[in-house]
Nucleic acid binder design. Structure first.
Length: 1001
RNA sequence: GCGCAUGUGGUGAAAUUGGUAGACACGUCAGACUUAGGAUCUGAUGCCGCAAGGUGUGGGGGUUCGAGUCCCUCCAUGCGCACCA
């Protein structure tokens, strides 16, 4: 009997589906465990080998925990709203719902082939009205609450109204988000519109005018993390700043808790660090600087006492302030500019406006700025300080103004140097006059009352002083901005918001969901509005009431989907509290690093809001996060000479090729030497042009001797022998010494035209255009899902990114066949045995200590490795175990059966099949994980490595309970040891029990 | 520029607490069985060397009886952030 994976896998996938073995109950006496994958966006391209990596890892863990006696929730669904479906709709007119449905079908089929243990009865899709009803509902909860800074949590907006009614908005009730302060009576006199306007400044989901990242090509606004280097993350279109009314999530209010929450979750340091950087907390102080009266004629400034408020993290350097800089957009600029400087300032402002973010980022840091003519006064030294404006100060951070300390800050130093502003040195020898030195170690000089104090101690002293004399206070700032929450798109959740007299109101809860209307056209509406604005009858509700026409961004649905899995069919609530209490946090969350800031921060925020409002009992969604590495494609590239090519010339290719002035972008540096020095000197030049060769040509359509035909070594070989030539087209194969193309019409191979080339391979992202996509189907067809699963795990640590390489898959496949042969012989059939029931009948057929040792070694190792996600070493432990059982000729059910249970999480199909072949009638999926017994590993003797002066020289077998003195005696008596001691006196002998012996001479 | 991560055979990698570096595989070489081998099995395989032996975890330095592992420093690669005061 042969290992027929095709039949076995089909059979069991069908059987599992039929028996509903993966259906999970919310009602179980077992302890719970929640294993979650980041759900996929169902793109049209389908799965490639990189996608399932995380799914396989989580599946193994889920199955393992189930065997360990847990009630495991392991669901899957689709993040099915999003841009690509809409872009596709724009191009083809196909409704996104249709393409999404089709794509999901493909995904599902691909996933099913791999044998995952998902509970599909809990499947969800973010674009399903039954789901987004609750996305809208949660949005309204967020809309209807504000962040109480005293209690550091979200509260119902009604509570705030009550506060306003009782005490108004005063400086001391801690809620002065708005600039507007008012008494209780004033509040009561406000019109409804005014009240709503005030409340909007508190709501956690709010609408406001703001500078947004506007992407003309996509016709929408993008969140900060969707913009990369000034262009859109999707598609790479230019992005500009634009003022628009937008919805926002007031995530900045949660900055401190998002930061603090990182302490109690198990994420990688890199991941935590990325989130910390994104939040960007800094401690400092806000300090007011008075301006000297504006001397210009008619100067109104002389009457008012204008002040510039700056933010600094280094108040200790205040005596080193040589100038001040305002952001060009700063509101004071127009007030303080002197008449003489007005033309220059106007010029500069025009220049700043003319530059997009893109330009500012693209160029190397350039020093620009302009003097306003105004002077501020240092509150401590009384020194007059010129006030400048410059691009390098950002309006959106801190107060939009800085005190510049050139000796301590490189940007300030560069600025001072460029504009010839004298630099005050307050750090003595720490300042070399050439560069700024941001040290905190220096003893301050030229610093008035701070002289002689070390900088890091001076910070607190200055802060106290500032607060004492009332010119400022300590202040914590965050780089993070509120998250833009509206998109001018069609394929997303509509907002459950209507406008009356321009004021936003929530729709009635019983009107949810606000369903996405069907449209025939996806082109943008007027004035930068989304496509929904085109549907008049949907937008206009009569009586001057209108719907919001924006839709929610991609991260809306994904910010809470992990909760919905707990109770996916509930029509009365987003999830029953009983269900969320039972399942609680996601115990293990697996997905890629690309969601480090976006998705993870937003879902953490939503969880905290729901927690604050009492809907759920935990405020961090994910207890442990495992980041799977990216699997890169290995592109096979042929560098082909592109100029005219004469017969025979390839024989002296060395003289006929060169590269253009700059090498083609994708020529790996390691290849350049091949032709650069020796080849350049000829008039008869050829240019090399890189072509991506489809990888399946290399992987599949080659026979053994031609395998790896296109790898780098061979490319070099072919090149150096000047032998081969190719012409690249997508359906081109190197076969039997020739490059051939399949001619569809004649149904035959044709040898094709030859050109000189050399080849190389390089790792890059898998993509269709690079012809380097390897999809699971062909591999599963050739080796089976179990082999595929184990091979993906065997490739290396889950967290590590690595290039895909199909070569090693044979080894894993061989392992499974070898396992099979412990049970069945091709000719003889079943060879596994079982012990007779009574000891008297066994006659030497007992399970031997060696066999038990092999088994229990595996139980220990594989259990530990699985627990810590070290799947590659677990797979290797399986191999070791099977190899050893083969050596022992052990075919005993008593050993093999527990091994199958160990294997079930990794290779469920073959494990199930063999488990049944052994006579079991229940599923291996519900078996009990074998218990490790250390007694089987106890040895009476142990081999000790013996080193002389730390160099390993020999090994000696000693009894397990050997005492140090005895071990020393044995070691020193050893022949090899004596040879290396060379008669020198032994200084000491180090004996570490169970480890080694080291003789020092 | 700042932050984080990673550097180990021809290749993917292992070494969990400082204790026999290279487990397990791929590949390669030799052999067995075979009409055949893209099946299976056996053996070899870090590098130098006939061998004894030497040498070896990116480079240099240090701590230690002992360092891939700890410390310092430099280099390379990858990722993230990037005028955040």
């Amino acid at each position: 009997m042969e290992y027929n994976y095709r039949e076995i896998e089909k059979k069991w996938q069908g059987a599992w589906k039929k028996s509903g073995v993966y259906k999970v109950s919310n009602d179980s006496p077992k302890p719970k465990f929640y294993v979650l994958d980041m759900f996929p966006y169902p793109s049209g391209a389908g799965l490639h080998v990189g996608h399932p990596l995380g799914y396989i890892a989580s599946d193994i863990y889920a199955r393992y925990k189930r065997l360990k006696g847990f009630n495991v929730l392991h669901p899957m669904g689709y993040d099915s709203f999003g841009l690509p479906a809409e872009q596709y709709a724009l191009e083809t007119g196909q409704h996104p719902a249709v393409t999404t449905e089709k794509n999901i079908e493909t995904f599902r089929q691909q996933l099913d082939n791999i044998g995952f243990s998902f509970d599909w009865s809990r499947e969800l899709r973010t674009s399903d009205p039954h789901y987004y009803k609750w996305t809208q509902w949660i949005f309204l909860q967020i809309f209807n609450c504000w962040f109480d800074k005293k209690e550091n949590k979200a509260r119902r907006i009604e509570d705030l109204v009550e506060i306003f009614e009782q005490t108004g908005n005063t400086a001391d009730n801690g809620q002065r988000q708005t600039q507007r302060l008012f008494s209780a009576n004033q509040w009561k006199d406000f019109s409804d519109e005014e009240k709503q306007e005030v409340l909007m400044e508190y709501r956690l989901a709010y609408s406001a005018f703001g500078e947004v990242n506007w992407c003309e090509a996509l016709g929408t606004v993008l969140a900060n993390d969707e913009v990369v280097n000034g262009v859109s993350e999707r598609g790479g279109h230019p992005v500009v700043k634009k003022k628009m009314r937008q919805w926002y999530m007031r995530i900045t209010d949660y900055a401190e808790r998002l930061l603090g929450g990182l302490e109690k979750v198990d994420f990688s340091d890199a991941m935590k660090e990325m989130q910390r950087n994104w939040i960007g907390r800094s401690e400092g102080a806000e300090i007011e600087f008075s301006l000297t009266p504006n001397p210009s004629p008619g100067g109104e400034g002389s009457k008012q006492s204008l002040k510039i408020e700056v933010y600094t993290t280094r108040p200790d350097t205040i005596f080193g302030v040589d100038f001040m800089v305002l952001a060009p957009e700063h509101e004071l600029v127009s007030q303080i500019t002197t008449k003489e400087q007005q033309p220059a300032i106007d010029n500069y402002l025009t220049y700043v406006k003319s530059r997009s973010d893109r330009e500012r980022m693209a160029e190397v840091k350039q020093v620009t700025g302009c003097f306003t003519g105004a002077y501020a006064v240092n509150p401590f030294s009384g020194k007059q300080i010129p006030v400048w404006i410059a691009e390098y100060v950002l309006a959106g951070y801190g107060t939009g103004a800085i005190m510049a300390v050139p000796c301590g800050d490189q940007r300030d130093f560069d600025f001072a140097k460029h504009f010839g502003i004298p630099v005050t040195n307050i750090i003595g020898d720490y300042f070399n006059g050439q560069d700024a030195n941001p040290t905190k170690e220096a003893i301050l000089t030229n610093s008035g009352f701070l002289d002689g104090i070390q900088m890091k101690d001076a910070i607190a002293i200055v802060n106290d002083k500032i607060e004492e004399i009332g010119i400022g206070q300590r202040k914590i700032n965050y780089k993070m901005r509120d998250a833009g929450f509206s998109r001018q798109r069609y394929w997303g959740e509509p907002f459950p918001i209507i406008y009356k007299n321009g004021v936003a109101y929530p729709v009635d809860l019983n009107e949810l969901p606000v369903e996405l209307p069907h449209v025939e056209q996806y082109s943008p509406g007027p004035d930068g509005q989304g496509p929904l604005a085109n549907i008049r009858e949907w937008v206009n509700l009569g009586g001057g009431i209108q719907r919001e026409t924006n839709t929610m961004p991609g991260y809306a649905g994904s910010s809470w989907y992990f909760l919905r899995y707990m109770d996916p069919h509930n029509d009365a609530e987003f999830a029953d509290k009983k269900a969320t209490d039972y399942w609680n946090q996601v115990d293990v969350y697996i997905g890629g690093t690309e969601h480090a800031v976006g998705h993870l921060l937003y879902s953490r925020m939503w969880t905290k809001v729901l927690y604050d409002l009492g809907y759920i009992g935990f405020d961090e969604p994910f207890k442990k996060l495992v980041n799977q590495g990216m699997i890169q494609g290995v592109s096979q590239i042929a560098y082909v000479a592109t100029n005219d090519f004469e017969e025979g010339v390839h024989k002296s290719m060395r003289n006929t090729v060169t590269i253009p002035n700059s090498p083609p972008a994708s020529v790996p540096e390691s290849m350049l030497h091949l032709y650069s020095s020796e080849i350049l000197n000829d008039e008869n030049k050829h240019l090399f042009k890189p072509y991506n060769i489809p990888v399946d040509v290399v992987e599949i359509n080659t026979v053994n001797s031609e395998r790896n035909m296109l790898n780098i070594e061979l490319g070099q070989k072919l090149y150096s022998q000047r032998l081969s030539a190719i012409y690249i087209k997508s359906k081109t194969y190197y076969y039997k010494g020739n490059w051939r193309s399949w001619n569809e019409e004649n149904n035959s191979w044709e040898i094709i035209e030859a050109q000189p080339f050399f080849t190389a391979s390089m790792s890059e992202k898998m993509s269709k255009s690079k012809y380097n996509v390897v999809n699971p189907e062909s591999l599963i067809d050739k080796y089976g899902a179990d082999t595929f699963r184990m091979y993906e795990m065997f490739l290396g640590p889950v967290e590590q990114s690595k290039p895909w390489d199909t070569k090693g898959i044979e080894g894993v496949h061989r392992f499974l066949k070898k396992l099979w042969r412990l049970f069945f012989d091709e000719v003889k059939g079943p060879i596994w045995t079982t012990l007779a029931p009574s000891p008297s009948e066994r006659a030497g057929g007992e399970v031997s200590p060696e066999e038990l040792k092999v088994l229990h070694k595996a139980i220990k190792k594989i259990g530990e490795d699985t627990e810590r996600f070290s799947y590659n070493t677990a797979v290797s432990a399986f191999m070791v175990c099977v190899n050893e059982l083969h050596d022992l000729k052990c075919y005993k059910k008593e050993i093999l059966e527990p091994l199958l249970i160990l294997l079930a999480p990794y290779a469920p199909h073959i494990a199930e099949e063999l488990f049944h072949q052994l006579g079991n009638t229940t599923s291996v999926i519900d078996a009990h994980y074998p218990k490790f017994e250390s007694k089987y590993l106890v040895e009476s003797e142990q081999e000790y490595p013996v080193s002389i002066n730390g160099k390993m020289r020999t090994t000696i077998i000693m009894s397990a309970d050997v005492q140090p003195a005895e071990a020393e005696r044995i070691a020193l008596a050893n022949e090899v040891v004596n040879k290396w001691i060379e008669g020198k006196p032994v200084k000491k002998v180090i004996f570490v029990k169970g480890k080694m012996v080291n003789v020092v001479v």
